[in-house]
Structures are given as structure tokens and as C-alpha cells.
Amino acid sequence: MYLPEPIVNLIDGFQRLPGIGAKTAQRLAFTILKMDDEDVADFAQALIQVKRDLKICTVCQNISDQDICDICQDKSRDTSIICVIQETKDLIAMERTREFNGLYHVLGGAISPIEGIGPEQLKIPSLLERLSDEKVKELILATNPNMEGEATAMYLSRLVKPFGIKVTRIAHGLPVGGDLEYADEVTLTKALEGRREV
């Protein structure tokens, strides 16, 4: 089947996204063709803006449109508790529960020797720098309950021990092998409530 090069390039572009197979990429590309020119321009501008205007928060490593994200600037949050998560999408899931009012630290992944990700690829130095602040009393390890997340939590608990900070792990109300971003609010709330000291 022959398709013009621009549509083939668009399909290829969509296929580079995680979870998008050939048929879905083709469906998305043809949906773009049917959209109004203005809507397509807005969509393209949104893509460009995300890459151009977003940065990493200098405190928690979350994505932000400013040097320090809104969560880190929020004076009503409990600065004595830091919740360590793997990715920004996990932060979004935690915030949906409306149960956690502390601060976050985004690692940017998990230890995974198979994928060539070691502790040096994660945002651990900036976490350790934050822990030197005497205000921090508890570190919640909310990495995913899979092999990589457990390895990362164990590594961090050992690394943080000399700081004398209480280290807890979210309870396994989450299915083993699951990801935080797919958990519902009730499950995440129970996991937070049932966290345990490591």
C-alpha cells in the first residue's frame, strides 16, 4: 500500500511513543489529517512548547515551567517528609489521593542492571543533599513494587541510614509488578497509610 511520505513520517513518529503500535499510529495519523488546520497548529505548538519551556525543578527534580516547582514553593506543605518516587507520573498519581502533604523527590527511574541503569544514572546526589537539612524527619520510599523498584528502595534505605532519618516504604496495597501511575486513589491511600519503616 502506497502512502505519501509526510503521512508515513507521521505514522513513524507516533510509533516511537511507548505503547503505540502500527495500527494505533496509523489511526492517530489519519485523525490528524481530519483535524482543522488551527487544531493541528495548536497541537504542534503544544509539542514544541513542552520541549522548549519545561525544565527540571532544581529542588525535587520534578518537571516544571520554572526553576522551582509549585509543590516545592508551597509553604503549606510539610517539609519534614520527602516521598521518593521514580517518575513525575508517579507524583501525579500520589497527588490524586490528596492524602500526602509533604514534598517529593523524583529519581528519574529505578536501578535496573538489565537496562544499564545504575545508581549513578538516578537523581540520588540531589536527594542526599536535601537530607542534610535537619528539617527532614522521614523519607518515604514510594518506588514501584517490582524488582527494580524494590532494589532501588533497598539501595536508598542503606544509603540514607547514616543520616538518622526515619525511612519508610509504602505498603504493598499495590500489586507486585504494577506501576504507581495505574493505581487508583484508594489503593494508593492504603499504601501510604500502611507504610513501614525500612
Rank of each mutant, 00 (worst) to 15 (best):
M1I: 04
E5K: 14
E5N: 12
P6T: 06
I11L: 12
G13D: 11
P18K: 01
K23H: 12
L28V: 05
A29H: 04
T31A: 13
T31E: 15
I32N: 11
M35L: 11
F43V: 14
Q49V: 07
V50A: 09
K55P: 13
K55R: 07
C57A: 09
C57I: 08
C57G: 04
C60H: 04
I71E: 15
I71C: 07
D74E: 14
K75A: 11
T79N: 13
S80D: 08
I81A: 07
E87A: 04
K89S: 07
K89Y: 15
I92N: 06
A93D: 05
A93G: 02
R98G: 14
H105Q: 10
V106H: 04
I114Q: 10
E115M: 08
E120W: 09
I124V: 07
L127G: 01
R130C: 02
S132H: 12
E134H: 13
K137T: 09
A142H: 01
A142P: 07
L156N: 00
V160C: 03
K161N: 08
V167K: 00
T168P: 03
D179K: 03
L180K: 01
A183K: 00
A183R: 00
A183Y: 00
D184G: 09
V186Y: 13
T189G: 07
L192H: 03
G194R: 02
E197K: 01
